[in-house]
């Protein structure tokens, strides 16, 4: 088992990571052009396909997915083991949330890989 100290260290580091990758994500959607333009499928550099065609932006979305998945589910774990204390409960919560977090990461990664592949072929 990973110690609580290590988990909280990763929690803080992923928080800092989200600060960067989240700023890039929110910045590309809100600050590069009017939101309506960026929410179109294609046609401008920061529309959906434009973002995924750019390997750096697509990579930062994958990083954001990993950071948020850890940070969110570790945060939920902290809340749940604070609500009620018992070794069995803590064990169950930790494993259940690890499985859910992994499923979210795998599913999200698949979306990013397919979107990246599609975007390479979009004019």
């Amino acid at each position: 088992m990973v110690s609580e100290r290590t988990l909280m260290l990763i929690h803080y580091l992923t928080g800092l990571g989200i600060l960067v990758a989240g700023a890039v994500h929110i910045g590309t959607v809100f600050l590069t052009a009017p939101v309506k333009e960026n929410l179109e499928f294609a046609g401008s550099p920061f529309a959906v396909m434009g973002v995924y065609r750019n390997a750096i932006l697509a990579g930062s979305l994958e990083a954001l997915l990993l950071f948020v998945a850890f940070h969110a589910f570790n945060g939920l774990r902290v809340i749940l083991i604070e609500l009620y204390q018992s070794p069995r409960w803590e064990h169950a919560v930790t494993w259940a949330l690890t499985v859910v977090a992994l499923l979210v990461v795998i599913y999200g990664t698949r979306t990013i890989i397919i979107a990246y592949s599609i975007a390479q072929g979009v004019a």
Partner: peptide, 8 residues
């Protein structure tokens, strides 16, 4: 994640 997953 679920919503964007349906798009592909």
């Amino acid at each position: 994640i679920v919503e964007t997953g349906y798009v592909v």
